[in-house]
Design a protein around this nucleic acid. Structure first.
Length: 290
DNA sequence: CTCCAGGCGCCTT
DNA sequence: AAGGCGCATGGA
């Protein structure tokens, strides 16, 4: 019998999917481990995920019939093997692919992704998570949670952030990034369609994002990659710059422009996907190796 | 204590 | 065009 009002749980068949690496690789900042599961708020809904042998089990707070939003977020329909085949077959990429087997890119909500990465500049991932947690608990709308689960909050909308003062944001410990986030939120609140970049080329979409204060090439590329699925975007941060320099330029320092130009040529149509493998590999392998 | 973190904007050359 | 510096905050 079909449950007319939907179920609070669902199971999605998956093969090559490393849930932990995916949720904990610095692309999203609100996932927390609870035992064998991972919990977060996605598009205003509390979610808990657990990986079993052949499925990912999902639990939400309210009976649900349509799980398309979660399937899209987790990118369950992507054929990962066909993406990996496009990566260069060099030593570093082979090591990264072995170490990070099953690592995926998520498809996040654009505003949350943009705001999160505006906050990210020159911060460690643990700090980014703390700032975003404070931002959500102070200013995000409460969301439904199951019995016995602590109150959670949605990511605050552009309109909510736009209505705040700079001091409110600084109270979340985001420092000099506060005016950037505030002004970006105000521009988007005044014209929400400004984030409708889906039909633009990567270059045009990047230019639009870089018009926001606090958004340069790197943050724009993160948003293109993690929210819009534009997988040719190749964010170059300190980790990736170091990896490229050491692995492909014999340790000789290159300018960001040179690294971006190299990456576009070298890593192919899914360069951004390859970047996430390099990034996660560099961050998780023991120091001093390779 | 110092160094650095998923950078950016602005100011010099 | 290209490079240097300050910016808040806190982990290592």
């Amino acid at each position: 019998m079909k449950e007319p009002y939907g179920m609070r749980t669902a199971a999605f068949a998956v093969g090559d999917y490393d849930l932990e690496a995916t949720l904990n690789s610095g692309q999203a900042f609100r996932w927390t481990r609870c035992g064998e599961s991972w919990a977060s708020v996605v598009r205003g809904q509390w979610v808990r995920l657990r990986r079993f042998e052949n499925v990912i089990q999902a639990e939400v707070a309210l009976p649900t019939k349509d799980w398309a939003w979660l399937r899209a977020y987790l990118q369950l329909d992507l054929d990962l093997a066909s993406v990996l085949r496009t990566f260069p077959h060099d030593g570093p990429m082979k090591s990264a692919m072995e170490t990070c087997r099953g690592l995926r890119l998520l498809r996040q909500e654009p505003w949350e992704c943009l705001a999160s990465f505006i906050v990210s500049s020159t911060k460690q991932i643990v700090q980014i998570r703390q700032v975003i947690s404070a931002l959500c608990s102070r200013f995000g709308a409460p969301v439904a949670v199951p019995q016995g689960i602590a109150q959670e909050h949605a990511f605050p909308s552009p309109m909510v952030i736009a209505s705040l003062e700079e001091a409110d944001l600084r109270a979340c410990k985001m420092g000099f990034r506060a005016p950037y986030l505030l002004e970006t939120a105000r521009q988007i609140a005044a014209n929400p369609s400004i984030l409708n970049l889906e039909d633009l080329s990567v270059e045009a979409a990047r230019s639009r994002l870089m018009e926001f204060p606090g958004v340069g090439r790197k943050i724009a590329d993160c948003v293109l990659l993690f929210a819009y699925g534009m997988q040719a975007a190749f964010p170059v941060d300190v980790w990736v710059a170091r990896a490229l320099r050491d692995l492909y330029f014999r340790g000789q320092r290159q300018s960001l422009a040179q690294l971006n130009s190299f990456a576009l040529d070298y890593f192919g149509p899914f360069a951004g996907y390859a970047q996430q493998y390099l990034f996660h590999w560099m961050r998780t392998r023991p120091r001093g190796e390779g």
